[in-house]
Write a protein that binds this DNA or RNA. Sequence first.
DNA 1: CGCACAATTGAGCAAGCTCAAGGAGTGTGG
DNA 2: CCACACTCCTTGAGCTTGCTCAATTGTGCG
Lengths: 239, 239
Amino acid sequence: MLDLLVRKFERRDDISAAQREAIRSLPVQLRQVRAGESIVSEGDRQTASLLLASGFAARFSLMRDGGRQFTELGLPGDFMDLHSLVMKRMDHGVLALADCELAAIPHEALRDLTAQDPHLARLLWLETVVDAAIHRVWMVGLGRRDALSRMAHLFCETQVRLDAVGLAGGLSFDFPLSQTELADVLGLSAVHVNRTLMALRSSGLIDWREGRVTLNDWARLVRLADFDPLYLRLWKEPV
Amino acid sequence: MLDLLVRKFERRDDISAAQREAIRSLPVQLRQVRAGESIVSEGDRQTASLLLASGFAARFSLMRDGGRQFTELGLPGDFMDLHSLVMKRMDHGVLALADCELAAIPHEALRDLTAQDPHLARLLWLETVVDAAIHRVWMVGLGRRDALSRMAHLFCETQVRLDAVGLAGGLSFDFPLSQTELADVLGLSAVHVNRTLMALRSSGLIDWREGRVTLNDWARLVRLADFDPLYLRLWKEPV
DNA sequence: CGCACAATTGAGCAAGCTCAAGGAGTGTGG
DNA sequence: CCACACTCCTTGAGCTTGCTCAATTGTGCG
């Protein structure tokens, strides 16, 4: 379960056997959340951070008028609320989009680990920094991309992120969102998501049936989305 | 100059005299950048992080088609690229919107500081986490708010952030952006920014003349923007 | 004066929205 | 087994927010 974290760190930088061991021996408490249920609510004060072991989750904010905006998708290997280690009170909620298994790691243990090992501290810090980088890319999409390119970008990003944790079978991956949920990711209405999707489908770029997306023409999709995966920091570079 | 940082930390948590001193004795190199010039370019590999001492800056991303989206405003007391301490390569650029003074703090010094003092490490980490929180709020605005409320929200946020560093005279503050730049903040066209601004002005909510904004009706503006400053983490709470 | 840049305004257009309805799949109680 | 409810997807129709293109008016500066 913590191996997921080890493997993610190892994609980004070299770590020693002792460090690997230090991560593997972090205390965890397993938690299961059903699809559609809340994982963390806005305003909660966290005392542990949740590592998603399997499933799909999303950070979201609600508006006074009932509107909802998802601000990030959480995939296996991602922390849903690592930032709560330094900012206890949650400024947003986290929702399970599929059945999820989560490993709760007490903040106390994470604090000890980061105090004793500055390198692992930086790798954890990097996790939250990559979240911010993803946020920025989404902002660019929300502010400056039209629906088609925005959606294409999300599919590209999701493919690369899932592939990084071995959950993409080539250019195909599970994507258990409803179109309404996708609309809240993309800042569109559900109706427009449907039409945009139809356009992507009928131009042969993607298929999406029974919760599984297939990217039929990666090159064309990347061009349409202007996608460059550098911001995901999924390749080695010393930290 | 580094006092700005000390004061920001002290707004958020208690720090000891020794810690204060450790921050004050960080090596810095002063740098001046003229309005309109670039502070950091996308793709740069940073070896120091830049603390904005005075002026106004913005993070931005460019699109292939020439479009531009600002992803955060940098105000005095903010780091423009603290995240580069753990993610060397810049995934976006930083632009001076007004004449800026910056203090460059070598990564080496920051690494030493964070390795030796976990509490200060967490406070620096928190800086980047608040950036991410601001990103999320902007995302909600870009995805789900109309132009009027989005602009009102930005003015509220800017007032609170400037006030926190003593740069707001009551409900009035310097705001040295052109309408075109504001458009790139809000994900709107310059023309629509102008019209939205007119609406805010003629309803008596704000004035904006000669680079200075005045908020005439804070309560109404907050309501229009649905603004809640909690995400800025400008008040005390142990880290 | 001439130039560059910012703000403003008009006019027409379009991407994306809302409202509404219908179909398909699934689960539940009778 | 059927009726019903429910959710999700799909499609049509008309509307509205915000866009583009274009022109006009300052304003500071060499």
